[in-house]
C-alpha cells in the first residue's frame, strides 16, 4: 500500500502549522492526526511529518517512541484503555482488565497493548485517566466510560461489534 494523505487532511494539517511561531511545535498534533487516519504511525508517516515540518526523521521518531499514546503497529479496531492507577485499582480495575482479557482470549498478566486474534479488539492498561471518583474507568477508542461493571463492559463490547 502506498502512502498517501488525503487532500482535506493535508489542508487541516497545514492550518495547524499556522498555530505556532515554530513549525516543529505542530509535530504532536500531526502524529495524532496521522495515527487517527492510518491507525498507527508508520515509518512513512514519520518521514512525511519530518519533511512537512523541516525536521529530521529522528526528531519525529523520538516522539513516537516516547509518548505512550503513539503506536508503530496497527491495533485492533477498538482499543480498550483500562485505567490501572490507585483509585481505579481500589475500585476494581484488575477485575475489569481480567474480564476483557477473559472474553477476548488475552493474557491477564500482560499490562501492555495486546490484540485479539480476529484483530478486532485491543486491550491495555493505562495510567490515571482523571476521573478517579467514578472508578473503574476506561476508554474505548475516543469514548470515555465510568463506573464500568462487568455488565457495562459487555455492553461496550457488544456496541463495538
Amino acid at each position: 500500500m502506498s502512502f498517501s494523505i488525503p487532500a482535506d487532511l493535508e489542508a487541516e494539517l497545514n492550518e495547524l502549522v499556522t498555530h505556532y511561531p515554530q513549525k516543529r511545535s505542530a509535530s504532536l498534533m500531526f502524529l495524532h492526526a496521522l495515527q487517527e487516519h492510518f491507525g498507527y504511525v508508520s515509518k512513512e508517516a514519520i518521514e512525511w511529518t519530518a519533511k512537512k515540518l523541516d525536521l529530521q526523521p529522528i526528531n519525529v521518531y523520538e516522539l513516537v517512541t516516547f509518548y505512550p499514546m503513539f503506536r508503530q503497529e496497527p491495533a485492533g479496531r477498538y482499543v480498550m484503555k483500562v485505567c490501572r492507577t490507585l483509585s481505579c485499582q481500589l475500585g476494581g480495575a484488575d477485575k475489569l482488565h481480567a474480564h476483557f482479557c477473559g472474553k477476548l482470549g488475552l493474557d491477564v498478566h500482560k499490562h501492555g497493548l495486546q490484540t485479539s486474534k480476529d484483530g478486532k479488539f485491543s486491550v491495555e492498561f493505562v495510567e490515571c485517566l482523571a476521573s478517579c471518583g467514578t472508578a473503574p474507568v476506561m476508554m474505548c477508542n475516543e469514548d470515555f466510560y465510568e463506573g464500568v461493571s462487568n455488565v457495562k463492559a459487555d455492553e461496550i463490547l457488544a456496541k463495538a461489534q
Binding site: Q22, R24, L28, H32, L63, Y67, M69
Partner: peptide
C-alpha cells in the same frame, strides 16, 4: 495543543518542551 499520554508533560518545563514539539 494536545499531549500524548505522558505524565511528565504536567511539569511546566516538560510541558514547554512538549509544546515545542
Amino acid at each position: 495543543h494536545r499531549g500524548a499520554g505522558a505524565y511528565i508533560c504536567g511539569e511546566e518545563t516538560g510541558l514547554i518542551e512538549s509544546l515545542e514539539g
